[in-house]
């Protein structure tokens, strides 16, 4: 284990425990952790196990997944501006969720919204595969992703535009900002298999991503199967991003900024960046979710808003640094 992995893991543990200890119910650290681990009757166990634990777990899972998918996407496209949302899966998952809210499907069945979002993600990934094909340049993948994102965005806007119900429209807008509040263990169980499967797929790309540093031709001649890599990347990203969007809404910037931020610390090696970025993404999302609850506890500040507020300036700083590097 490298020093960076140790530092990030330590940070992650600290943030995870902090995330468990923060919330509107004021209970002191000792008893709350005891209630979490030992269980027992009473509201404290309920708060810890049914409210705070799923929230912290989702922060960990989704943040890690977004960080990993961002690192894999940037490595594959050999472009530091790539983002896991690039292949259009988050847009189409959001469209599925928006339709579920608008039609009332989300209220008739508690799993209606995440299931509709997952269906949207599946349709989105099918459309991307159909457009970009299993083999082709990275440009065709980017273009297909942009087209699907644009279409999903336009349809989402259409639903909002024609929404006869202002409450539904309000709910849609808030949902799209992304949040981890009021999630249950059910949400964790929905997202977990997809995120684990997708992460395993993305983690297997490590060596191929390293080889791609030399370009597609050289990598292929060294025995890297580009066709298989491309499919693994698309399905892996779709699984983690689809599941994340389904349970937490659209959370941007984690997959874009975290790999960029950590790249210098792994010697710019795209394979090693995968693990670092997973840990870093989880840390960033947990930190943002702590900020959400610590700064404006009673205003329901949305997580996606905070990640964008943290991410955008960081990104500007990184661009500035890259520019200095180039001169």
């Amino acid at each position: 284990m490298t020093r960076l992995t140790l530092i990030l893991s330590g940070l992650l543990v600290a943030l995870f425990v902090t995330a468990l200890l923060i919330g509107p119910a004021h209970i002191s650290p000792g008893p709350s952790l005891r209630a979490l681990i030992m269980g027992g009757e009473g509201p404290m166990t309920l708060v810890m196990r049914e409210i705070r634990l799923p929230r912290a777990l989702l922060g960990l899972l989704i943040g890690g997944a977004l960080g990993l998918a961002g690192a894999a996407m940037q490595g594959y496209l050999r472009n530091p501006l790539a983002d896991p949302g690039l292949i259009g899966v988050s847009g189409s998952a959001a469209l599925g969720a928006v339709l579920a809210i608008q039609t009332g499907f989300a209220t008739t069945w508690s799993l209606g919204l995440p299931m509709a979002a997952l269906s949207g993600a599946v349709l989105g990934v099918c459309a991307v595969l159909l457009l970009a094909g299993p083999r082709g340049s990275s440009l065709s993948l980017i273009l297909a992703g942009i087209a699907i994102s644009a279409l999903a965005g336009a349809l989402t806007a259409l639903v909002l535009n024609l929404s006869p119900n202002p409450f539904a429209a309000n709910e849609i807008v808030f949902w799209m900002m992304g949040s981890l509040s009021d999630r249950s263990m059910t949400h964790v169980w929905i997202a977990l298999p997809f995120i684990l499967l997708g992460s395993a797929l993305l983690a297997s790309l490590s060596r191929g991503l390293d080889a791609l540093t030399l370009g597609e031709d050289a990598a292929e001649a060294m025995g890297i199967g580009l066709r298989r890599m491309r499919l693994t990347l698309i399905f892996g990203t779709a699984a983690v991003v689809g599941a994340s969007t389904a349970v937490a809404g659209a959370i941007g910037f984690v997959g874009l900024v975290v790999p960029h931020l950590l790249r210098p610390f792994v010697g710019a090696r795209p394979g090693r960046l995968l693990l670092a970025s997973t840990l870093g993404g989880a840390a960033m999302l947990l930190a943002a979710d702590i900020v959400v609850r610590a700064i404006l506890p009673d205003r329901d500040l949305k997580l996606g808003v905070v990640t964008a507020l943290i991410g955008a300036p960081l990104f500007l700083h990184l661009i500035y640094r890259t520019r200095q590097d180039a001169t």
Binding site: T213, M222, G267
Partner: peptide
């Protein structure tokens, strides 16, 4: 990959890796 090494004309180095790391990729 073990029978033939291919050096394409396009000189691509996508990331800011150090020289030894880049050469080690040849062992893939």
């Amino acid at each position: 990959g073990r029978a033939v090494a291919w050096l394409p004309q396009a000189r691509e180095i996508a990331w800011q890796v150090d020289v030894a790391t880049l050469i080690l990729l040849g062992r893939t």
